[in-house]
């Protein structure tokens, strides 16, 4: 009996001692709390393709994209900089996990728009998903006038669609990798092409410093396009952030600036040095007011 009593006494003391040690520990650990992973990419695009990152609720992202001519044209064409096509676009964050965007490209005077939704957000802690899943659906319309009277161009023949799923993971502070299976549907195609083109995108970011990151954006086209004419778009570049702006400077064999264009209309070959310089400029504005209640005193 005495032994038990003394055991109990020790236990009691142990409890007291424990309680004095670290008060926060007496509540249990909160490392199990779900913690969403943010800033997997600097921008909502890897380079051409969508990234797993979102711009945030109430944020308007004004994006200007430039693609120049082939670098190997030499000094006569100032390494391609004499020619430029551009896309001007607006993305808006309707919610933390929902973005809409529109844009217009000078190439073929093409309008495009998309919806981007994130059903699964990578998180650490209890019940957190190891990856993010993002779904994108987009549409594009070529508005350039038809100057060939032999061709019968209707509205629907100008339209293309794309659907994309992005599965991505931020592995650590520096390294992010995502895979994005994509299908592009074009209502009207050339004789040898399929209407549906399947492609697998690979996007990655490696952060070099707080403000500079190296990015790779590649799409492997699986079917539907003649291999001798069409090439897989590969872009390599740097993201540079300066306050509210993100500059994405890159070299690429793709000149298209929406999914239909860069997946199905990349006719240049890295192997032959047919690459071009381009940049994306992103400027964000906070439009929607976040609710911010003053603290209760």
């Amino acid at each position: 009996m005495r032994r038990i009593a003394s055991t109990c006494f020790f236990l009691f003391c142990a409890f007291l001692a424990f309680s004095q040690d670290d008060l926060l520990k007496s509540l249990g650990t909160d490392s199990l709390r779900k913690n969403y992973v943010t800033n997997a990419f600097k921008s909502s695009r890897v380079i051409n393709g969508h990234s797993m990152e979102f711009i945030g609720k109430g944020v308007l992202d004004f994006r200007i994209l430039h693609r120049f001519g082939p670098v190997n044209q030499g000094i006569k064409e100032f390494f391609g900089l004499d020619q430029a096509s551009m896309r001007m676009g607006f993305d808006y964050g309707l919610g933390k996990n929902f973005t809409i965007g529109i844009g217009r490209t000078t190439l073929q005077k093409e309008l495009d728009g998309f919806l981007k939704f994130r059903p699964v957000h990578q998180a650490s802690g209890l019940g957190g998903s190891p990856v993010s899943l993002v779904l994108v659906a987009g549409m594009s319309i070529i508005t350039m006038e038809n100057d060939d009277p032999a061709k019968d161009i209707t509205f629907s023949s100008r339209v293309g669609y794309y659907y994309q799923a992005i599965i991505g993971r931020k592995f650590n502070q520096r390294f992010t990798l995502q895979l994005s299976p994509t299908v592009v549907h074009r209502n009207q195609v050339l004789l040898n092409d399929d209407n549906d083109t399947y492609a697998l995108g690979i996007g990655s970011r490696f952060k070099l410093s707080k403000r500079v990151a190296f990015v790779v954006d590649y799409f492997y086209v699986l079917n539907g396009l003649p291999k001798e004419q069409n090439f897989n778009p590969l872009s390599l570049g740097f993201d540079i952030e300066t306050g509210g702006h993100v500059f994405q400077l890159h070299f690429s064999n793709a000149s298209g600036m929406n999914e239909r264009a860069f997946i199905t209309e990349t006719f240049n070959d890295w192997g032959k040095g047919d690459i071009q310089f381009g940049f994306n400029l992103s400027r964000v504005f906070t439009i929607g007011k976040k609710k911010s209640k003053a603290l209760k005193q």
Partner: peptide, 16 residues
């Protein structure tokens, strides 16, 4: 008296 706060829980008016 002890306090602990997760830094990621801070909410700003601007996402940036």
């Amino acid at each position: 008296v002890q306090f602990s706060v997760l830094m990621k829980g801070f909410e700003f008016k601007k996402a940036l």
